[in-house]
């Protein structure tokens, strides 16, 4: 398989800032890993059902009842910035 790892695009999707200097060291290492992974392209998997979980489990259902109590104060105490019970981030809409 052709290898078209566009680091800038992937780093943007992953929301990780990669500096040009870091790029120098990251790219060759990622290429090594991708080469190792590329062995999979040779494998014949016709008619094989993908396996997402090791146990063929189904999702349990529960009664539609409220079981959780309100912990927002405890949880928001951990946040970098909070005001009026809201998590604060830099302004998004002008």
């Amino acid at each position: 398989m052709s290898f078209d790892f566009d680091l800038d695009r992937v780093a943007h999707l992953a929301r990780i800032l990669v500096t040009p200097e870091e790029k120098q060291t990251i790219v060759p290492r990622l290429e090594n890993i991708m080469q190792m992974i590329d062995q999979l392209q040779e494998v014949d998997t016709t008619d094989i059902v993908p396996m997402a979980s090791p146990l063929d489990q189904y999702q349990r259902l529960r009664a539609d009842q409220i079981t959780e109590t309100d912990h927002h104060e405890r949880y928001q105490a951990l946040a970098p910035k909070v005001a009026f019970d809201l998590y604060l981030v830099p302004q998004v809409i002008e």
């Binding site: 992953a14 990780i16 993908p50 997402a52």
Partner: peptide
């Protein structure tokens, strides 16, 4: 970071079937 970048790549549009689904088949 390396693992997040690899993971993001194998799940991204155009690569999902070739890597992620293929790996799940090989897992079986």
């Amino acid at each position: 970071k390396r693992r997040i970048l690899i993971g993001t790549y194998v799940l991204s549009a155009g690569h999902y079937d070739a890597y992620y689904i293929q790996a799940q088949r090989a897992r079986r």
